[in-house]
Amino acid sequence: MREMLSQLRDIEPPEGLKERILLSTVRRSRLYRLVALASAAAIVVGLALGLFLGGLFVGQNQAQKEAVKLLEGIRQTSRPLEESSMMLLEAIVLTMKTTSMVQSQDEEVVKDEGI
């Protein structure tokens, strides 16, 4: 009976069983590790890209705000400048008028006195 049963020792597994086992254990685990690494890398790159683009966006907004502030500042500072310019212009015009009046009076004096 033992001898007869020992014939069963010659049973051979079908080809590819070992590969199948390794594929579902060691190699699958390696594959999972690779996928996990790739996912982690993708997440890191995504985050970095997001932060960079977000930073750019925020920077752009900041720049816009700064520009608006600057423009307002210029507008505010340009009023006194305009006023002073007007005053300056008025002063110049007044000076010119005064000068011409003085000049014409001088000419009349010269005529009257026969110089």
């Binding site: 069963l8 020792r9 049973i11 597994p13 079908p14 069983l17 086992i21 579902s24 254990t25």
Partner: peptide
């Protein structure tokens, strides 16, 4: 894996079932 397959085949008498049992045993290990 040969010996586990042989054991499973001797117990079950089906090649497919023996393969499944062998694979499952190693997966559990």
């Amino acid at each position: 894996y040969r010996s586990i397959y042989r054991l499973a085949f001797s117990m079950l008498g089906s090649e497919q079932d023996a393969c499944d049992v062998t694979q499952e045993s190693f997966e559990r290990l």
